[in-house]
Amino acid sequence: MIKAVLVINTQGKPRLTKFYGFLTVEKQQELIRSVFGVLCSRAEKVSNFMEVDSIFGPDSRLVYKHYATLYFIFVFDSSENELAMLDLIQVFVETLDKCFRNVCELDIVFNYNKLHSILDEIISGGQVLETSSTEIMRAVEEISKCSLPPSPPSLPPSVMSESASNSISLVPKTVSGWRSR
């Protein structure tokens, strides 16, 4: 069972947080802070595991990968394989890369919803359901298509049509989206 998926940047700012059990925001914040506290003290080129029993309770494991300015972190328990989880991080990042063409931190900052769509295709309720990035991509694209067409009556369709540049933003009909065109 996967307990949490986190993306934190090297300054400790969370970019994506997903906990598969309910936690209060205070608790979430505390966990992220302590994880980052340990992470940033680790040297480069060391193993990708962290002992986190003290943070997440007994039977918790954590793997992370460090890409450029971001840490991708999976927290899970003994029914997952550590190396497989590392592979899964790889799958996740590869999918992001395909989605955004050379993904960078900014993509992740501004595509909050798409990120969740992708993650939800991979993991559902803490279980890994899909590990093929092509399958994930296919589903995510379908979902994006689903999200777009029914334009709300309150906005003229012309605003809609192109603002969905890269089909990234799920809220394209905003002032800024409109201006940026």
């Binding site: 933003s169 394209p172 905003t174 002032v175 800024s176 989206g177």
Partner: peptide, 21 residues
């Protein structure tokens, strides 16, 4: 008012940008 709100409502991107600034 709903229309006004909608037209001048800030979207998620605006919030993200706003926070970043």
């Amino acid at each position: 008012p709903s229309l006004m709100d909608t037209l001048f409502q800030r979207g998620l991107d605006d919030i993200i940008k706003g926070v970043r600034h």
